Simulated scan of single mutants.
Amino acid sequence: MASEPVAASSSREQALAIALLSGSIALYLSLGEWPAAFYDAARWAVFALSCFVCAWAWSKKRWGWIAFASFGAFFFNPFIPRLGNEGWDVIGLAYMCGYAALGISLVHPRMAGVAGGAFAAYGMALLALTHYVNHYMPHGPMYWTGDYVCLHDGRGPCGPEMLEDMTKLDIPEWAKFLRSKAFLTFLFFGISSSLLLQKFNSNR
């Protein structure tokens, strides 16, 4: 009988871990430009997730996560929105990484294998779509950002930084999102799936 509360606590923690990993994917998607209804729903989801994290962190006396989740509840508050739909990039990126890291640390090694496979499959599907978008959909004009970039850790060769202007490009918003976030897609899903699968393999 004494083990039941521990099991229940562990079960709740695993549910939170899965919610955190799912929430990090939702935050990744929020870095695009979508209809207002998407951001309204996302605010509710991230606000609820932040409240759950805050309650978990309070029960564990994890003060850093209490502060992080409290700020999350403040920023993503659906009742008095603090972020405009165009202002999610920096905050959304921070909470995407933070909640993914917490989810990876909490998930059980056996579940980490399933989650890692799902992250890897999702990331590869997005990168395959990105390849299609880059090679089979129209491109906008390139413009100079005013900066220069150098290869090999700044040792050269160097050249002007050019970006694609997609403001008037007649392709779907999801295609613009994938094209502009290709490196982030590779980085986020690559690192997340690697860490999850490493955790799974360490328990074998």
Rank of each mutant, 00 (worst) to 15 (best):
M1Y: 12
S3A: 07
A8I: 09
A8N: 09
S11K: 09
E13P: 03
E13Y: 09
L16A: 12
A19F: 05
S22F: 00
S24A: 08
G32T: 07
P35C: 00
R43D: 01
V46F: 08
V46C: 06
F47S: 14
S59G: 02
R62P: 10
W63T: 15
G64W: 11
I66H: 04
I66P: 09
I66E: 05
A67D: 13
A69K: 04
F74I: 13
F75Q: 11
F76K: 03
N77W: 10
N77L: 07
F79C: 08
E86C: 02
V90I: 12
A94F: 14
G98H: 02
Y99L: 07
Y99N: 01
V107Q: 00
H108N: 10
G113T: 07
G113K: 00
G113L: 00
G116A: 02
A120R: 11
M124W: 02
M124P: 02
H131F: 06
V133Y: 01
N134C: 05
H135T: 15
P138G: 04
G140L: 00
G146D: 03
D147Y: 12
G154S: 02
P157N: 13
M166S: 01
M166Y: 09
L169T: 07
P172N: 05
S180C: 08
S180F: 10
K181S: 05
F183D: 11
F183N: 10
T185Q: 02
F189P: 00
S193F: 01
S194G: 15
L195W: 04
Q198S: 05
Q198V: 00
F200Y: 12
